[in-house]
Design a protein around this nucleic acid. Structure first.
Lengths: 124, 124
DNA sequence: CGGTATCCTGCAGGATACTG
DNA sequence: CAGTATCCTGCAGGATACCG
């Protein structure tokens, strides 16, 4: 399934990938999800700075693209868990070299982010 | 140096990379440049659809990020050549798995050849 | 808790004209 | 040829309020 949202508009595979991960927070969402399944609120906290609306819409797009899976538990305190699909796992793996490149480029500058939320990329 | 334009705003390496390649046409520019050095007009043709203004600004950003090199030949018909820096080559290599993922996702629609290289030709 | 529904803003990107 | 200089537009993303 070709998943993607803008059929016929791609010049190459990277284009298509960029379309999927192009949102401002998407790679952060993918990154958060790479470790474990997360609930909406968790993601909101992990991806700090994102608003509910944007998180929800990005999540929906990622779901449509077959990257994340949305599991709804019909309980009385509503509970929804988001997780990576196998395709999402592959995407994260494909993203790893790019992350390595980025880390290499910024060198030691990353301390500035504060909090030392530094962690390695989702490589298998 | 090769450091990025928005210091202090990165959560991880991918974030930084996304900042560098985030422009609408940047990966296409990188892709075009991956084969050979190109002049401005060549790029304008290769990256079909981009306007001069946007191409110029993206090129300047990529140059600032240490991804492309701008070589000016002081001749009477003005001539400028853009090429990838070693860092740019590394970036393209880091981009390759993502491109492969994207190609995989769109299915066989693109009919591109992987061959012995890590990229396919932009023949669309 | 896990979202919608609105409304609003900024800025990346487009169109067009001009220049060295 | 290789760009600037303007001006303009669209839409991704932000703020805030409300709902099942």
């Amino acid at each position: 399934m070709a998943t993607v949202r803008r059929p016929g508009s791609y010049h190459c595979g990277i284009d298509a990938a960029m379309d999927v991960i192009g949102g401002k927070w998407k790679v952060l969402i993918l990154w958060a999800l790479d470790e474990r399944a997360c609930r909406f609120g968790e993601l909101r906290r992990l991806v700090s700075g994102v608003t509910e609306k944007v998180l929800a819409s990005h999540l929906r797009e990622l779901e449509e693209d077959g990257i994340v899976h949305r599991e709804v538990y019909d309980e009385v305190p509503p509970r929804v868990e988001y997780s990576l699909t196998p395709l999402g796992v592959l995407l994260n793996e494909a993203l790893a070299p790019l992350g390595a490149w980025g880390r290499d480029v910024i060198g030691g500058v990353m301390e500035v982010v504060g909090g030392g939320g530094d962690r390695a990329d989702p490589e298998d």
